[in-house]
């Protein structure tokens, strides 16, 4: 029997379950709510689309066929540009030569690069040629690496399938010193031909100090 508090559970009705429309999972509002539930501080946020002018996320050199990686990169770009330390000079509270805080990149996507996967499956089934660029973009790590290289984010790279897990992972990385900040990016590609592509990102920092850890565990004397 586990005598400690359980790990945070996946979603269930959260603070957004009350009256009114529930925000899309890949929205700044939903990520901000989830961060609050995980006691994490949101330093900046962004999403795609943000206006009627957001029709197609800017292409990234080397990424083809699918909107997955462009969506992630654009949400990340907007979020980081709005974050602390994005302007000239060091981030507040950091020495001149400290550079950007060690920042983890956490990508959330239940379906991954859906358009890319469907394209490859169709090509395999039809015996069609598969382009060499599809090799690396078959995994969400690829765009995480693109974002990390572009913005010099040297923390861990983690890809998971749901937002609550991503928040729990981020909180533990910050608590254990694996990273000082975490850039969390959620991408939900349209799963039907006419559906919307959505992406959102939040830059996370540690929240208030955690409560004291439980003292009594299975196998330990009270």
């Amino acid at each position: 029997m586990n005598l400690t508090s359980a790990l945070p559970l996946r979603p269930g009705p959260g603070p957004d379950a009350g009256p009114g429309p529930r925000p899309a999972a890949a929205s700044a509002a939903a990520l901000t709510q989830a961060a609050s539930a995980a006691c994490l501080r949101v330093l900046s946020s962004a999403q795609w689309p943000e206006s009627a002018e957001d029709r197609a996320a800017p292409a990234i050199a080397g990424f083809v066929v699918s909107s997955f990686s462009p969506l992630a990169a654009e949400a990340a770009r907007r979020c980081l540009l709005r974050g602390p330390g994005s302007g000239p000079g060091p981030a507040p509270g950091r020495p001149d030569d400290a550079g950007r805080p060690v920042t983890a990149v956490v990508v959330v996507s239940p379906l991954g690069d859906l358009a890319g996967a469907a394209h490859v499956a169709e090509a395999v089934d039809d015996g069609a040629r598969i382009g060499p660029l599809l090799f690396f973009q078959a995994v969400p790590n690829a765009v995480a690496g693109h974002v990390a290289a572009r913005w010099q984010l040297t923390g861990p790279v983690v890809c998971v399938a749901d937002t609550a897990t991503a928040m729990t992972v981020s909180a533990l990385l910050l608590a254990d010193g694996d990273a000082e900040e975490a850039l969390l990016i959620r991408v939900d590609q349209a799963h039907t031909p006419d559906g919307p592509d959505r992406a959102a990102a939040v830059l996370l920092g540690p929240g208030p100090p955690p409560a004291p850890e439980p003292q009594l565990h299975e196998g330990e004397q009270p």
């Binding site: 790990l7 969400p140 983690v158 749901d162």
Partner: peptide, 13 residues
Amino acid sequence: SGASRAYTSACVA
């Protein structure tokens, strides 16, 4: 019946 989660981080998953 505890919380389950999926990691999809390629070779480091």
